[in-house]
Amino acid sequence: MSIQHFRVALIPFFAAFCLPVFAHPETLVKVKDAEDQLGARVGYIELDLNSGKILESFRPEERFPMMSTFKVLLCGAVLSRVDAGQEQLGRRIHYSQNDLVEYSPVTEKHLTDGMTVRELCSAAITMSDNTAANLLLTTIGGPKELTAFLHNMGDHVTRLDRWEPELNEAIPNDERDTTMPAAMATTLRKLLTGELLTLASRQQLIDWMEADKVAGPLLRSALPAGWFIADKSGAGERGSRGIIAALGPDGKPSRIVVIYTTGSQATMDERNRQIAEIGASLIKHW
């Protein structure tokens, strides 16, 4: 067993022997301040990774656009098919120029040779490549099948209805392509620590998230040296922004954090800054 596999296998073990965790309302004060600064709703939840206990939450059962955070769930569904012998990570998928959609920095470079399922998941999570996500959605049967996968996990809230990039439209009061912070946090925890996926697939999923290259201005910008984070960000229309993450000190994750916002007129930089400040408060009061 590799060191990384050992780390993920012992996530519940280490967490069980940690000192009790206590909620700190100071972080919620910052979440509410972010709402004021952005002029928009902000949803927040913080779960203990081992027990699933909610440590703090704000608007945990209000719907927010998922945006690209759905790509972690998508690759979880792909990995479940791999575990069941219905898919192979090494299978190569070929596609054409007509398949390319807006923001496809990886797939646009491989029109000639195609990409493997493993490479597509890596591109979808680490670079948020939209064509990679659409190609992977095709392998599982489309958005409705991802929703069905989530329902089978016990998540009857999260739903995907459309493809990239239309799913980022974020129309107010439109339930399409949305989740709730509580539902997303619980589902992410199941994917990373539950028995739904094999140990190898859980490790692969967290490795992809740990290698995320496009979430630097968010929670990662607030992390002290030595902290662990595996995350996936999302951005959408109407001032929408979000991030889902597993993080913790001492090089291992111990909490799940989900943050979503929508309806702001603020710039992307300002949305990023507010999420980073929430992260800084979380870490300060850990």
Rank of each mutant, 00 (worst) to 15 (best):
V82S: 02
G226Q: 10
L47M: 08
T126N: 13
E164L: 14
I278E: 08
P65Q: 01
D36G: 01
A84H: 08
T158I: 02
I244M: 13
S233I: 15
C75P: 00
R176A: 00
L135V: 08
L150G: 02
D36M: 03
Q97D: 00
I171Q: 01
P165H: 02
P165I: 01
Y103G: 14
R91H: 09
W208C: 04
H110Q: 02
K71H: 15
L136H: 03
R176M: 00
E62H: 10
L247Q: 14
C121R: 00
F64K: 05
K30M: 15
T147A: 06
T112S: 06
R220P: 13
E102A: 01
K32D: 06
G142R: 02
V42D: 04
L218H: 14
S221Y: 15
R41I: 14
S104E: 04
P181N: 02
I259M: 06
R41D: 13
S264G: 04
E169L: 01
I125F: 08
L247F: 05
M184L: 03
P25E: 00
T193S: 10
A170W: 00
Q97R: 03
R91E: 09
D231A: 15
E46Y: 10
P143W: 05
K53V: 10
G248I: 04
G194M: 11
I140C: 02
T262K: 02
M180G: 14
H110R: 05
G263D: 10
G279T: 15
F58C: 02
E35Y: 12
D99V: 09
K71D: 15
L135R: 04
L79G: 03
N98A: 10
R118V: 05
T27R: 07
T138M: 08
T147R: 00
T131C: 02
M209H: 03
R273H: 14
N50I: 10
A183Q: 06
V31F: 13
D129I: 01
V29H: 12
R59N: 15
I45C: 02
E164F: 00
D83W: 12
A84P: 01
G142Y: 00
G194Y: 08
L38D: 03
L120D: 06
D161K: 01
A200L: 00
S57Y: 08
L197I: 08
T139W: 02
T27M: 11
D250P: 09
A34M: 01
Y95R: 08
W208F: 11
D212W: 03
K30V: 15
Q203N: 11
R176N: 00
M67D: 03
L192M: 14
A170D: 11
P165N: 00
S122G: 09
P249W: 11
L137R: 02
A222S: 14
Q97T: 02
I125K: 04
N134Y: 04
Y260C: 10
R220E: 11
A211S: 07
R220A: 10
D161N: 00
A200W: 03
S233P: 15
L137F: 00
G216Q: 04
G85C: 03
T193Q: 05
E56K: 08
I243S: 09
L192S: 13
L197Y: 07
T138Q: 00
I45K: 14
V257A: 14
I206M: 05
E56A: 11
P249I: 09
L55H: 09
L28C: 05
L74R: 02
D177Q: 08
G226W: 01
S201D: 08
L199S: 11
S254Q: 01
G39C: 08
S80G: 13
F149Q: 07
F58D: 01
T126D: 06
M127H: 08
D33T: 10
A215T: 01
G194W: 02
D48F: 07
T186Q: 03
A183V: 10
A133S: 07
R176W: 07
V214S: 14
P65F: 02
R162H: 00
I140Q: 03
E270R: 12
T138W: 12
L282R: 08
E237L: 10
H24L: 09
T179E: 14
L146F: 12
F70Y: 15
A148P: 03
D269F: 13
L100H: 12
I275T: 08
N134I: 02
F64P: 05
L218E: 15
Q86F: 13
A34E: 00
L55M: 05
V101H: 12
K30I: 15
L146R: 05
V31H: 11
F228I: 12
G85S: 10
V258N: 09
L247D: 05
H151W: 06
V29M: 15
L167S: 02
A170R: 00
E102V: 00
A133C: 01
S80L: 14
G216W: 13
S281D: 08
V42I: 15
A215S: 15
R91Y: 04
I206R: 07
G52L: 10
V117L: 11
D269N: 10
A225S: 11
A182K: 06
A211K: 15
L205Y: 02
R238L: 05
I54M: 13
K284V: 07
T267N: 12
H285A: 01
E35C: 08
W286N: 07
G90L: 09
V257T: 15
A276C: 10
K252H: 04
E62Y: 09
V31K: 10
F228N: 14
T262N: 05
A276V: 14
H110P: 02
S57H: 05
Q97E: 01
L219D: 14
R41T: 10
I278M: 14
K32E: 06
I171Y: 00
P65T: 05
Y44N: 00
G141K: 03
D231C: 15
G279W: 15
F64E: 03
M184V: 06
L47R: 02
K109F: 06
